[in-house]
Design a binder for these strands. Structure first.
Lengths: 230, 230
DNA sequence: AATTTCCATCTTGTATACAAAAAATTTGAC
DNA sequence: GTCAAATTTTTTGTATACAAGATGGAAATT
């Protein structure tokens, strides 16, 4: 009988070099060290990471699949940062996916998860009060992760996490907007309230507004993009 | 100045061997030649395709990313067909994504696209009348592709196409259900009607019911799975 | 007899070597 | 001086060689 050995990713599992390089490169691209359009030279990277071209190529293929770089056959791989249009599209999809999570979660969520959401929100509040932006991002992510999980759909959860990670650096810029943090917190609370009432449509609408890029956020996003492209 | 050379995938572009192998393997897995849990031996595949291990490994990594196989470090790669639960989850996400497309399309769709949808439906009808299942699948896919496009969100469109392709073989089994084809056609027409009226919520609900696995479809899906796993 | 340890073998992961295609540079003609 | 063709150089794609971890079985110990 086939064992239920799915999702048994032991934390301490030593990964191969290609995986580590992929993670490292992902970080370098997302943090802006490699600008949009920059070519990623295999041999340079191999020297930089002190490995052969093989694991570097493997890492680049991974990044190509996740959309961070574009691989043009026999030409090389190039950093492919989303432009303004694509970014807005991605945020729209994120908003809709989270809205789906909220709607599904409204009837599936556990009491435990509800209190977890409250707890995450409380820690978010503390972080805001302490001007601890890193802490805020961490708890914010936890809040959203709980929501994804409570959709009761593991596949949806994974897809949401994937897109959340992809948008992480841009979200960071977005939240710089003055006064966004308290507003964001209020939105979190409205979402939890709707979930407690079991009102899926209200929860969905609330989180759609929470995630979507609109009004003020739009200008900040554009400004940050211009800055990143310089 | 950076050129607008995005999405210029010329059809005649000669692809590298690894790409061809990835496609071939994908087909073999989806058509069931390689059953769930089967190990894909690098050297065997290299011999089979008469290439070295390098392009085979590249292809396997690609399949690993798209979820068709699972790569366990230093153990090998194994075919990873979704189980019943995961499959239901994927169909649920597909239904929700298409519902989002419908809701967005309701206010963004062009007259041209509406007539294209009518045309695709007409050809679907013809295929049903002619018992031409292959033709039906083709036109059905076109119908859905138009809808994705009319969401006005290129990123969403791509994600939908990705999942649609992934579910293709299972959808095939699902539509075997007796009397499903006429019902499916009626649903298509209801969707177009809602879109014409610009009623996003109705269109979303219609397509959600169209795609979701429920009632009869559930049993057929389970039966087909049992058959595929033998 | 059962279990554990060690060794042989096999498989994956990485390094290097080679081939082919694209980019760059040089050279030649006009 | 400019443009174009050809050669050189660089870089990607593939093959092979090597290293390290995993599997399986045999031998030794309890």
């Amino acid at each position: 009988m086939r064992a239920e050995n799915r999702c048994v990713y032991v934390s301490g599992m030593d990964r191969k070099r290609a995986d580590l390089i992929a993670d490292e490169l992902e970080g370098l691209i997302l943090e802006g060290t490699y600008k949009d359009g920059a070519r990623l030279d295999e041999v340079q990277l191999a020297e930089r990471f002190e490995v052969s071209r093989t694991p570097v190529r493997e890492a680049l293929q991974r990044l190509s699949q996740s959309g961070l770089v574009e691989q043009i056959p026999r030409r090389g791989v190039f950093v492919r940062q989303p432009g303004p249009v694509e970014l807005l599209e991605m945020f729209e999809v994120m908003a809709e996916l989270e809205a789906v999570c909220a709607r599904l979660a409204a009837s599936r969520i556990t009491d435990q998860a509800l209190s977890d959401l409250h707890a995450a929100n409380a820690r978010c509040d503390e972080a805001v009060a302490a001007q601890d932006t890193d802490g805020y991002y961490l708890e914010n992510e936890r809040f959203h992760a709980i929501l994804y999980r409570q959709s009761g759909n593991g596949f949806l959860e994974q897809e949401c996490l994937r897109l959340y990670r992809r948008l992480q650096p841009f979200r960071r810029m977005q939240l710089r907007a003055r006064g966004r943090l308290p507003q964001s917190m209020a939105e979190h609370k409205a979402i939890v309230t709707a979930l407690e009432k079991g009102d899926g449509e209200v929860a969905a609408a609330a989180i759609r507004g929470h995630v979507a890029v609109q009004g003020e956020k739009f200008h900040h996003l554009m400004a940050s993009l211009k800055h990143a492209a310089e």
